[in-house]
């Protein structure tokens, strides 16, 4: 049972990693328009948290949202098609990497505005609480977002109203090109304390640890709606966006990254528990095929061509 879970989490992480490596290459080849922010090195957060979620739970995300999206069960081909700007994309090519959403999976959207996911997810949590089925809402955001007033407003409101929202902070130490130490005079732990909200800190690169802690929090939230904060120490391996040369990072920081790789850490743990090397080879092969097929299919899809852009602006009557 534990081994099965570890395997499924490992596969989910590898699926994200392989997808983002494919995106990395597509970007380098000039096939992805716009910005791409990769979450390589942070996969354990999305997978650890999502392993405790069900379809009716909602999640929302930030600019670095591919992992959160795929971990919630979104299919690969329409995911790639969206990022490639194709008509068959999840958002029909209207959103792109920073706005991938899949409402059929409770994925309320990545977001291009730092911190904006918090109130939206808090509102989703209000709706889920009113529906009364024990579903919860999860918002992923970075350490850089902590400086946004919305974070404070939403922790306050969700505490006042006992809303089932889990605030998951991916603390990778960076806000674009600036270290978080220059952005934030306090810590999330202290904020949680100030508002009386349950807070846990985990090694966000150890998926088993993220999952175990998230499981405890989620189980509590389903029973008695209340907010919780999960702070995950993690590592941004790539630049802020693809094309970022990262000359502001020290060599020693970059050299320390491989030892913190969430996939390697999970594999080491699983091998101790007796998962044989063959299994890892096999799953890597399967996922490579799955990702390659999805990318190939997405690439054959046509770009959106819509003479009437205004037609999609409103659900109801059009406008001027």
């Amino acid at each position: 049972m534990t081994a099965e879970r570890a395997k499924s989490r490992y596969s989910a992480m590898l699926r994200i990693r392989a997808s983002e490596e494919a995106l990395q290459k597509l970007f380098a080849d000039g096939r992805i328009p716009g910005f791409v922010h990769l979450s390589i090195g942070q996969e354990a957060v999305a997978v650890g948290v999502s392993s405790c979620l069900r379809d009716a739970d909602t999640v929302s995300s930030n600019h670095r949202g591919h992992g959160h999206t795929l971990a919630k069960g979104v299919e690969l081909e329409p995911f790639f098609a969206e990022i490639l700007g194709r008509e068959t994309g999840l958002c029909r090519g209207r959103g792109g990497s920073m706005h991938v959403a899949d409402f059929s999976k409770g994925m309320l959207g990545a977001n291009g505005i730092v911190g904006a996911g918090l109130p939206i997810t808090t509102g989703s949590a209000l709706a889920l609480k009113l529906l009364g089925k024990g579903d919860i809402a999860v918002v992923y955001f970075g350490d850089g977002a902590l400086a946004q007033g919305l974070v404070h407003e939403c922790i306050n409101l969700s505490a006042l109203w006992s809303l089932p929202v889990m605030f998951v902070c991916e603390n990778n130490g960076w806000s674009e090109f600036s270290p978080t130490s220059r952005q934030m005079a306090t810590s999330l732990r202290k904020l949680a304390d100030a508002f009386g909200v349950e807070y846990r800190a985990v090694d966000g690169n150890r998926v088993s640890e993220v999952a175990a802690t998230a499981e405890t929090l989620v189980a509590g939230m389903r029973k008695a709606p209340a907010p919780a904060i999960l702070e995950c120490a993690t590592t941004r391996v790539r630049g802020h966006f693809e094309g970022d040369r990262q000359d502001y990072r020290t060599a020693s920081e970059i050299q320390s990254l491989p030892a913190r790789d969430p996939l390697s850490l999970a594999r080491a743990e699983m091998q101790v528990e007796g998962v044989p090397p063959d299994w890892f080879d096999e799953v890597a092969k399967q996922i490579a095929v799955e990702v390659n097929n999805a990318v190939a299919k997405a690439l054959t899809a046509p770009p959106p061509i819509d003479a009437d852009l205004a037609a999609g602006v409103y659900a109801g009557m059009g406008s001027k």
Binding site: T121, G123, A137
Partner: peptide
């Protein structure tokens, strides 16, 4: 459960409405 007094957090009030609307309200 239908009528809510909010704190003085206009951005969050509006955002909560967006999220609740996206979740069926």
């Amino acid at each position: 459960k239908r009528v809510f007094d909010t704190p003085i957090s206009e951005a969050t009030i509006a955002g909560v409405a967006v999220g609740a609307a996206l979740t069926g309200f």
